[in-house]
Amino acid sequence: MFMQIDNLKVHYPVRGGFFNRVIDHVHAVDGISMEFEKGKAYGLVGESGCGKSTTGKSIIGLEKITSGKIIYEGEDVTNKRRDRKSAYNRDIQMIFQDSHSAMNPRKRVQDILAEPIRNFLSLSPQEERKRINELLAIVGMPEDAKLKYPHEFSGGQKQRLGIARAIATNPKVIIADEPVSALDLSVQAQVLNFMKDIQNEYGLTYLFISHDLGVVKHMCEHISIMYKGRFVETGNTKEIFENPQHIYTKRLLSAIPEVSPIGRIERKRERVNVETHYQKEHNLSFDEKGRVFDLVPVTETHFVAASPTIKEVI
């Protein structure tokens, strides 16, 4: 096992009352576990506000973890995440959703790309320059891009620069937080294919956070569906798409639009069916507080959240 997340919880306190005391908690991430193997892509799908980004940010150390463990290469790194210069921080990098705001507008591209190199690798100025040229070549940008500022690039180019920065220190895991949702469709395909290429070339492990099932299906071998800070279903891409178990997953899958006009009416009928099914079985799939149940295995790799009472039915 390369990397493991064990029962990760991120709770935010809600303050209020006369003395500004903690009166409640927001359960942004509420007990999720994942296992990562080297060179694979893992998808994290869910509606907005379900805690996908918080998960990514807490893994890389931008959010405090309330409880749970992160084990990386056999070592517990839960408390090392925030120590910026550790090997863990070098090996795990992030691609941000909005590449424009993720780059300092006052810095030239060469300084932006040099930032991780200067922090993590001790290279001489010549080697550093060579590495920057190399990175630009990897992401298919001309060398004169070095002297430009981020605002001089298009959205797709900026995202590729973001990727170049993320792979600058030869990381092993890349957390991609909705890397293409700010781009238009033609550029999305370009960036996604490019991400796949570098994954194959460098054996990267991706944690691919997205709300777009199509993108995740294209990119990932393993998908986890998240809802209200918990996993409702997790399994191989094939299992999730062909044999969805949880009503939330079914509902999500039925919402994928299809462009063909043939079979439009049947598809609509099915969507209505799924929706009524969802409303009817809501009580069976979520407990009385609306919390998602714990995961139970369906097959060896496929897990679904289910109440203890209907466990036998599956």
Binding site: K57, R84, K85, N89, F96, S101, A102, N104, F120, R165
Partner: peptide, 14 residues
């Protein structure tokens, strides 16, 4: 709170 500050944090800048 801007993303480039977050990015710098993940890139190991103190």
């Amino acid at each position: 709170k801007r993303d480039y500050v977050n990015a710098s944090k993940t890139l190991g800048t103190n």
